[in-house]
Amino acid sequence: MGELLALLSALCFGITHFVNGLASRRHSGLTVALHAQVGGTALGLLLALAVGGGTASLADYGWGALSGVGTGVGVAFLYQAMSQGAMSVVVPVSDVGAVALPVLVGVCFLGERPALAAWVGIAAVPPALWLVSQKSSSLGDDQSGALSAGTLSALIASVGFGVQFLAMAQVGTNSGLWPVVLSRVASVAVIAVVLRAYGAPGGLTGRPWVAVAAAGALGTLAIVLYLEATSQQLMAIATVLSALYPAVPVLLALMLLKERLNRRQATGLICAALAIGLIALR
């Protein structure tokens, strides 16, 4: 059951990022991120009130808040990246590090010892990131060697998502949903600070706001599903399965937006998929 919940979490994350990625092409990615998290906070509050109960400790709230900081950084810079570059490139870049970071923290600070296959997966992360982030000087495969647009923002987002997954997995199984609500509030605060620092507009109204807020609510459902998955499955498995979300926006971008990958990027995506799969074997 834990595996199914994690996969449903990945599906929700993927749809969220695709919808908000489209919105980021017409509006500031930071503005989209802010309103998406506001919508997500509203749903989180409703779910927490409906479910009730829970015995969250101060530590649970602390982990929830830290997870929200990671979420805020992740979505702010991911949507910024999607407003700059191809969705089929920046979303995978934002994901590989999100899986690798919990592994590295587990090894360095939590005493975990990954299997040999997982170490191979970790070693595959840098070349996968380099290949995926390469851009062409034309629509063909002639490489200019420069970073693809949005790559740097996607790398920052990657660290944020790693913190999001790692911290949320530490929340107690009987804590209820209030730590999730706190994480959403923290994400809104972080994005508001980033938005102000970049001088991005804060307003978003009409149909775009409805779509963005609904997608943000779906993102909150995704993190709730992930939290439940970690209570029924090993964090490693739940994290890797939830981190399969790039498959959704990448496939939709290739099919609906007619985005194209060059050979190096395609090879990088394959390396990234293999890396994630091997890391799951830790």
Rank of each mutant, 00 (worst) to 15 (best):
L269P: 00
G106C: 04
E228H: 06
W119T: 00
V180T: 14
A123D: 07
V171C: 02
G106L: 12
G44T: 05
G111F: 02
E259M: 13
R260C: 03
G62H: 10
F77P: 11
A167G: 01
R282S: 14
P92M: 00
S57R: 02
G160H: 04
V185E: 15
P246W: 09
P179Q: 03
A272L: 08
S94D: 14
G21Y: 08
L8Q: 15
L11V: 13
T173P: 14
I223W: 00
S136G: 11
Y245W: 03
D142F: 13
T55P: 13
L252Y: 05
L22A: 06
G106D: 04
Q164D: 02
G106W: 09
D95L: 14
A217H: 08
G106A: 07
E3S: 13
G64F: 07
A117G: 01
L166R: 10
L257Y: 10
Q170E: 05
T41I: 08
A213E: 01
G85C: 11
L8F: 07
S137I: 09
R260A: 03
V103K: 07
E3V: 15
L131A: 15
L256D: 03
L110A: 00
T151P: 01
T205L: 15
V132C: 10
A211N: 07
A243M: 14
A236E: 03
P92N: 05
L241V: 13
Q265A: 02
A211G: 13
T71M: 09
G70C: 02
L261Y: 04
G121W: 09
A86H: 13
A123T: 00
L139Y: 12
S242Y: 10
T151H: 07
L278T: 00
A169C: 07
A48K: 00
V224C: 11
S88K: 07
L218T: 06
V32A: 11
L22G: 04
A128H: 12
R26M: 04
V89E: 03
Q265R: 01
L66S: 14
Q143W: 15
R113K: 15
Q134W: 10
S9V: 05
I223V: 06
W63C: 02
L221R: 06
G14R: 12
K258H: 09
L225E: 02
V163T: 00
A23V: 08
T55K: 07
L152R: 13
A124V: 05
G203F: 03
G29K: 00
L221M: 14
L5Q: 08
G268A: 02
Y198R: 05
L129A: 14
L251G: 11
A167Y: 03
